[in-house]
Design a protein around this nucleic acid. Sequence first.
DNA 1: GCCAACGTTGGC
DNA 2: GCCAACGTTGGC
Length: 154
Amino acid sequence: MHYWLMKSEPDEASIDDLAGAPGQTLPWTGVRNYQARNFMRDLMKVGDGVLFYHSSCAVPGIAGIARVASTPYPDPTQFDVQSVYYDPKAREEEPRWMLVDVSFVRKTPLITLPMLRDEPRLADMRVLAKGNRLSITPVTADEWRVITKDLAKG
DNA sequence: GCCAACGTTGGC
DNA sequence: GCCAACGTTGGC
């Protein structure tokens, strides 16, 4: 059992989009970074906890809780010439980009970056590290507890 | 829009 | 394999 923080631009896919999706589940398309891909491909298991983070928006922060809902499979957008995520180097018989499905669990009151940074127990959180640009980062069990039990109350 | 930080690409 | 140039992320 692992825990993760996954960033999504709310203009593309927000926590409300996830809640409103068929089966409240969406494929996590568009990851084009090898480290983030490897997390999904090699480490994620069905049932893993996900902190759903809104990035590149007016008030970035954790907007809800989700969970990993599938085993890894090839990201279909890499083969789709119409997609902004199209990758001409990817081939069907040798996919480059893998993803998992993610399911809605619940919304939280928005937990903003300053709120996360103000919490001493989150001082070592990977997503808060200087220069971090990974769209998927591991979360420790302790960090998960602090965020989902303490910060997400309300 | 700016820019720091990081990842990727490609020439050599 | 090095590394400069370029592209991207993402907060501000």
